[in-house]
């Protein structure tokens, strides 16, 4: 991914900034300008929110054949995570072995390197998740 395109979304990727519909109260990640439930009633009422970063695993896969930029991490855990506020996202789960990961596992957001734009390019950072530290 090129740099301006990544940079534009760093608030979402660094800090889990999303939206809440001021009309129905539903949370969304990433940010949305319009609520898929309230349609026009939500226009101008979408509020910016920061998610806690805690959630649970809905489903996961152990990736053995990643895209080239992600090869250093393989095999790695890719998961769909449901944040405690409701929205779901796709992220890697780190500090956890493929044997330990389970559907329903509680996780929390951490800050990691996602990829590099080659050896000379920029480094992309953002959220990954790890098992929740009690």
């Amino acid at each position: 991914m090129n740099m301006p395109r990544f940079w534009r979304e760093i608030q979402g990727r660094y800090n889990l900034i999303g939206s809440r519909c001021g009309n129905c109260g539903e949370y969304f990640f990433p940010k949305r300008d319009i609520c898929p439930k309230c349609h026009r009633k939500s226009v101008g009422k979408m509020e910016t929110v920061k998610f806690s970063g805690r959630g649970r695993i809905i489903s996961y896969s152990i990736v053995h054949d990643p895209h080239p930029e992600y090869k250093d991490m393989r095999p790695y855990i890719m998961a769909i995570i449901e944040l405690e506020e409701g929205p779901r996202l796709t992220a890697q789960v780190v500090d956890c072995s493929p044997e330990e990961v389970k559907t329903g596992m509680e996780v929390e957001a951490t800050f990691r390197k996602l990829a590099e734009d080659g050896k000379e390019g920029v480094i992309f950072y953002g959220y990954k998740f790890r098992p929740l530290r009690k």
Partner: peptide, 15 residues
């Protein structure tokens, strides 16, 4: 880890 560096460590510590 391969996805950790000075920046990620600094961010985790600061958080």
């Amino acid at each position: 880890a391969p996805d950790e560096d000075v920046i990620t460590i600094a961010v985790e510590a600061a958080r």
